[in-house]
């Protein structure tokens, strides 16, 4: 069963770029080792980190179909920072992985306990239905 684990973070201010070097390195090392474990356990389908939110644009089609972009977002908005797609035995395992990611170390090495949204990934219909 596949699940997507979506990591949401707040915008600038408490953002990662302002952390002290030691905490930054601990955070990076934590994420590296999580990804390594997931690869080695054969549960990782894919994982992507996203650019910082100041690179984000909201795009809509205008009347003529041309893109209309909007790029200034309120400070308080939560942004998707990255995601994992895992293939696991049970929802409990997906939740356990999400909890591990959630506890990634932040400033002073304290767990961030950030919210991780976990949702099943839709799959192709079973063979009988084809």
């Amino acid at each position: 069963m596949k699940y997507i684990l979506m990591m949401n973070t707040m915008r600038a201010g408490q953002g990662v770029p302002e952390w002290p070097k030691k905490d930054l390195q601990a955070h990076i090392a934590f994420m590296m080792s999580l990804n390594k474990d997931l690869r080695e356990s054969g549960e990782l389908v894919s994982a992507e980190g996203l650019s910082f939110p100041d690179q984000a644009k909201l795009v809509r089609a205008g009347n003529d179909g041309a893109p209309i972009t909007d790029g200034v977002f309120p400070e308080s908005k939560e942004f998707l920072a990255g995601y994992w797609i895992v293939d696991v035995e049970s929802p409990e395992r997906a939740y356990a992985l999400a909890a591990r990611a959630s506890a990634a170390p932040g400033p002073g090495g304290k767990p961030l306990n950030m919210p991780i949204e976990v949702r099943p990934v839709m799959s192709a219909p079973p063979r009988e239905m084809l």
């Binding site: 770029p17 002290p20 070097k21 930054l24």
Partner: peptide, 9 residues
Amino acid sequence: MTQAARLVE
């Protein structure tokens, strides 16, 4: 980011 943090410290 590590370079920036190094200079801050």
